[in-house]
């Protein structure tokens, strides 16, 4: 159950996407999301869809991973689709009418449009985490946000917090597993009973988990101080982020596609 969590899952590789500068990847990913929302007809959305599928093909990430990334958000996708299906009013005759439910052709097409858009959005974002290690990712976020230092935003500290949080996800999962086993050995029932009973059954798990998380945080802080950690000022990096020709090429491709979609929107 706990092993199914895919947050920050990273598949090492050596594809073009893997080799790209992570700053470019983040910016282009955001641009892609904007593009998805700019696209307002099926032709431009199809172009955007093909674009991300091609990116997956190039990256060498298994297609099954796309499905896996969609799984947790399936309820959201269905909810959006159903809302659009029932609440969009068309100009022509309704296709289907029963009691308070009326479905128009426009409703169906908008629902499909929305589903495709959300799917592209999710798999697009997943591609970023699939091909970028969490450490490099936070590094890039730190660099991208560094202009905000001017307005006294603690950018380095935020990035460090993210790195530490990501680092400790597997540790905490393992710990949770251990505590659950220990309480089960004392006869705790975790997966039976009503909602209230289940919520109560979590107390023996959560309290030890919090206690040890605080203890771990304390130890980590101590260890960092022992190694003279004093924030980001004057700190050098082992891995320097460097933009290459590849990054500019991919950016150019992306901008071309974006431009095409804008033109497409104006024409149709």
């Amino acid at each position: 159950m706990l092993k199914d969590i895919t947050i920050g899952q990273f598949f090492p590789g050596n594809s073009i996407i893997h080799r790209m500068d992570s700053r470019f990847k983040i910016v282009l990913d955001i641009l892609y999301v904007v593009m998805l929302f700019v696209a307002d007809n099926f032709i431009s959305l199809t172009i955007a869809g093909i674009f991300i599928l091609m990116a997956y093909a190039v990256s060498g990430i298994k297609p099954i991973m796309m499905v896996k990334s969609l799984k947790p958000l399936l309820p959201l996708i269905l909810f959006t689709a159903i809302l659009n299906l029932f609440f969009i009013n068309g100009t022509e005759e309704p296709l289907f009418k029963w009691w308070v439910i009326t479905i128009y052709w426009e409703g169906i097409s908008t629902a499909i449009f929305m589903i495709v858009r959300i799917i592209c959005l999710i798999i697009g974002m997943s591609l970023l985490t699939y091909t970028t290690s969490p450490i490099v990712l936070t590094d890039a976020i730190e660099r991208l946000l560094s202009p905000l230092k001017k307005i006294k935003l603690p950018v380095h500290e935020l990035a460090m917090m993210m790195t530490i949080a990501l680092r400790f996800i597997p540790t905490l999962i393992e710990e949770t597993d251990k505590i659950m086993s220990a309480q089960k050995a004392r006869g705790a029932e975790l997966d039976t009973g009503g909602l209230l009973k289940r919520a109560k059954a979590l107390v023996p798990i959560l309290i030890p988990l919090f206690v040890s998380a605080f203890k771990r945080a304390n130890e980590l802080a101590m260890a960092m101080e022992c190694r003279c950690y004093k924030g980001g000022d004057g700190r050098t990096k082992l891995r320097q982020l460097k933009a290459s020709g590849l990054d500019y090429m991919v950016s150019l491709l992306m901008i071309t596609v974006f431009g095409f979609i804008i033109v497409d929107n104006m024409v149709f």
Partner: peptide, 17 residues
């Protein structure tokens, strides 16, 4: 069975709550 065969884990003090 779990009441019949009691199991104490390594570093069992972490289970106190």
């Amino acid at each position: 069975i779990r009441f019949e065969a009691g199991l104490v884990f390594q570093y069992s003090e972490y289970q106190l709550f």
